[in-house]
């Protein structure tokens, strides 16, 4: 259903995806696993025809480069976070995207019911929570019953409960012969949804594991998802980078890869910089390349936070 052959994508001289070949049969479910910068999102964007690339990608036998529009007819896509027309009503949004997909008689009510959003059709998109927006994106992705679902870290900006519910919903929806390609760095998500795991590192495909046998490399790190107000994110990134970490912006806050035994160190740095952390999650394990730089790894704390609390 999806065939990727010798895919190469460079940004300047930096290879984001480096000679990756991957093939998904109908009904297959493949997780793209790897740290930030491994090439997961870039690969997905190439499959959608959003980026120019070298190599070949065929979706349902259609060359994405030559006929991207027809290839995208077969794909339902859910991004990490829905940047949407906020003033649009939910049912209008569904009708709008249905028309773009060539579906004349879309039923917003049925679409919303399918993702547990019944009764929300009259709301404006801005009135929806993050989890509800992701459900709306899923409802739009499922319009026309596409044979392929492509998901790009769809739970990254959700809290633990929202994540759990969304993954449960995805499990219900993807067990019907639909092909699934998704990027994630959450182990529980991968184990719930994937049949196979494609492990990426610095743009290269290291291996493809059967999900039942898949285990991240022994030397792995946790990822802190720190929820911060918008104006504190960049100062926090600068402070943590100065402390030897490699934080990245992500949805409602920042992601900080840390060694499992040093999860408290970033909190100490942020407290010293008088930056308030609204909330945090210890998301999951991530591939070894995400381990923190030595400066961060050497720090120790007497109060290691390992559960979700408000500060």
């Amino acid at each position: 259903m999806i065939t990727i052959t010798n895919l190469i994508k460079r940004f300047g001289r930096t290879p984001a995806v480096d000679d990756v070949s991957l093939s998904l049969d109908q009904g297959d479910a493949v997780a793209l696993w790897g740290s930030n910068g491994a090439g997961k999102t870039t690969l997905i964007r190439c499959v959608l025809g959003l980026l120019r690339y070298r190599g070949a990608i065929r979706v349902g036998g259609i060359d994405v480069r030559r006929n991207g529009k027809a290839a995208r007819m077969l794909i339902g896509y859910v991004p990490q976070e829905l940047g949407f027309y906020d003033e649009l009503r939910v049912d209008s949004a569904i009708c709008y995207f249905a028309r773009l997909k060539g579906i004349a008689n879309a039923s917003p009510a049925a679409s919303l019911q399918g993702v547990g959003l019944e009764g929300n059709g009259g709301k404006r998109v801005r009135e929806l929570s993050g989890g509800m927006k992701q459900r709306l994106a899923l409802a739009i992705a499922l319009l026309g019953d596409p044979p392929i679902l492509v998901l790009d870290e769809v739970t990254a900006s959700l809290d633990a409960l929202g994540r759990h519910e969304f993954v449960g919903l995805l499990r219900q929806l993807t067990g019907s012969g639909r092909t699934l390609l998704f990027a994630s760095h959450r182990l529980e998500e991968v184990r719930s949804l994937a049949r196979r795991v494609a492990v990426l590192e610095r743009g290269r495909l290291l291996r493809i594991d059967d999900c039942a046998c898949f285990a991240p490399d022994a030397q792995h790190a946790a990822v802190l998802h720190l929820h911060l107000s918008a104006d504190e994110r960049m100062p926090a990134i600068r402070a943590l980078a100065a402390g030897g970490f490699s934080p990245t912006l992500n949805g409602t806050g920042i992601l900080v890869p840390v060694a499992s035994e040093h999860k408290a160190a970033p909190f100490r740095i942020l407290a010293d910089a008088q930056i308030v952390v609204d909330n945090f999650e210890v998301d999951a394990v991530e591939h070894s390349s995400a381990t923190p730089a030595p400066g961060g790894g050497r720090r120790k704390s007497s109060t290691p936070p390992d559960s979700e609390v408000a500060q």
């Binding site: 065939t3 093939s23 349902g60 036998g61 027809a70 773009l100």
Partner: peptide, 29 residues
């Protein structure tokens, strides 16, 4: 790595909306 299978007839018969249809839809929005 497995080999891709050909897409089913139901999907192959679906055609994307015309340029005029998409353009007008976006213009209205």
């Amino acid at each position: 790595m497995s080999t891709a299978i050909s897409v089913g007839d139901a999907f192959a018969s679906r055609r994307p909306p015309s340029m005029a249809s998409n353009t007008l839809c976006i213009a209205r929005r």
